[in-house]
Write a protein that binds this DNA or RNA. Sequence first.
DNA 1: CTGAAAGCGCTTACAG
DNA 2: CTGAAAGCGCTTACAG
Lengths: 363, 363
Amino acid sequence: MASIKDVAAEAGVSVATVSRVLNDHPSVSPDARTRVMAAVQRLGYRPNAVARSLRTDQTRTLGLVISDVLNPYFTELARSVEEEARSLGYSVIIGNADERPEIEDHHVRTLLDRRIDGLLVSPTDGGSPGMLDAARAGTPMVFVDRWIAGVDVPVVRADGRTAVRDLVAHLHGLGHRRLAIIAGPAATTTGSERVEAFREALAAHGLALPDAYIGQGDFQAESGRRATERFLDLAEPPEVVFAADNLMALGALDAVRARGLRVPEDIALAAFDDIPWFVHTDPPITAIAQPTGELGRAAVRALVDRIEGRPPQSVTLPARLVVRRSCGEPPPVRTTPVQPPPEQPTPPEPTPAQQSPVQRSQS
Amino acid sequence: MASIKDVAAEAGVSVATVSRVLNDHPSVSPDARTRVMAAVQRLGYRPNAVARSLRTDQTRTLGLVISDVLNPYFTELARSVEEEARSLGYSVIIGNADERPEIEDHHVRTLLDRRIDGLLVSPTDGGSPGMLDAARAGTPMVFVDRWIAGVDVPVVRADGRTAVRDLVAHLHGLGHRRLAIIAGPAATTTGSERVEAFREALAAHGLALPDAYIGQGDFQAESGRRATERFLDLAEPPEVVFAADNLMALGALDAVRARGLRVPEDIALAAFDDIPWFVHTDPPITAIAQPTGELGRAAVRALVDRIEGRPPQSVTLPARLVVRRSCGEPPPVRTTPVQPPPEQPTPPEPTPAQQSPVQRSQS
DNA sequence: CTGAAAGCGCTTACAG
DNA sequence: CTGAAAGCGCTTACAG
């Protein structure tokens, strides 16, 4: 592979001049520039990013450590992160922790060894030692979705409190009184927060959240299945199961189905994190949707601000309830046009008539 | 951040000795080793991978360029690739092309600039110029899932021919005679191959595949929706729609539903690529399942063989049909045990009694 | 505007 | 077994 020396020789200039041309340094004669460009062309030269990084001490690379790539929520997050990073001239290396702190640790260390310019983390259960060390050592870092209390790092996340309140109001309105939740790991903020929001919303309706109605999950499908089985074995099973993420909802659905029960007739189901498939499950699933793409983009902007010396900003965006049929609501009345209506973009701001936070699904 | 010089000073040895200790070079005295390890500990020293890469001309990093991360098939592929790579001591950088050759090109160039040791590619439509150049230039490369004809690169993929034949037999047995397919981009191998396999399988039953029954898709949901609408507008619409990937099946489902039609009563649906959600869609969807994890692992092994100087092997693994209810089959008879049966691992080899290639879904 | 030279943090023949 | 030194491919003050 051609190096900068080869280009210099080919163009009849020094490597310094080649470097200046490549980096758009102003003091280069037009003639030198032309010859260098031509040499670059002829040789198909591409600068060695490894050498450049060693010299400049920056890699223009961001690390993204997420808890589970197989979760569609994180996949979408990863995608928007990469897109925004690319538009700002950064690459991103994704590390998938699979909800396991040791693997999170492995990725954080590897990423740091590669001298990435900054780290975006959605910490697993409690966070791994290496990740905590990095934060303390002052590595440019931003938490997305989940965060660790007491660690001084900007956080970009969705606030589901209002949406959970809307969900509980919806459930209560449908006559449900025994509501259960499948929580994520208590040590993750999204694990505990969603339970707390749920508990508070219940309290507002005079309902309690007994311990037996709190299933302990780990954000994976299998744990949703087990928690649901336990609920169904109760002397007084809940009327509703609210899964704190979409994979545990999948597991819950498996469990309900394995018992030969029906949703929502025998038991209602709702989930945190909306995904395209929820429109087509049997029945369509009521879910709380996060502004995932915007979260990813805001996180990258905060991190790049931090890296480039601007003050980074924590961001909290609202999640919203999307009502479907899995909680017992009759299907929304709809006409069936022969031609589907043209795509209608969501209006940027709700008009007064649309202020209800409860948004009805299009489907 | 501490460098090797700091460690050397702290341990009272030369940087050469530190390097030898770090790389497990045999000729180091026990005493020197001990002092170096202690210094490393005290300083929290981690070798700079960028510097090491520049010096050794290897990054122990693999690039993976996939056509669409949001597609669960590719997400799973990416995950297994990363796992296998990690176990072999490599990191992987994922580039998401979003089915667009320009973006594929961007990622290939960026990855090459970073001097990754090898490239795993699932080429978009026809492949991008940069990717083709890299292949010709002798960059260690392996194609996964899709490949480009005439490019001398090992291919790791699933063969769906048998499964498609099983699918058509299944459909024919259910009485369907007008079968349509939503194809992927003709320039992708998976796009054209699946159509050809389908056509051949139909021919074996004396059925034709008229042009009007070939929808042109791009592996994205929206294209599945449009193709399905076109089918439904036909004077004689098909009885079955077979989508060449899971996202187009989602779109097809959207379209069918928007017309107020039912699956499978009004139209049957099947998909290439099985995903966990297909168990819970309304109705559960009959699909062709690829051995995705094994594909990812085999691809990494082939690439690492190539990188480390061993002869890489192309691998073709069979896909298999998973029958559910979306094509009109009555739900399989099942008892509903109060306790779910214990997890049963799939036997490694089919016994004679199980040789039927058609596998019935567990659900 | 240009080039010679130093140096980023490592590894590795080479000499001892 | 150990260290001094060269060199990987760049960038960038410094001198001219």
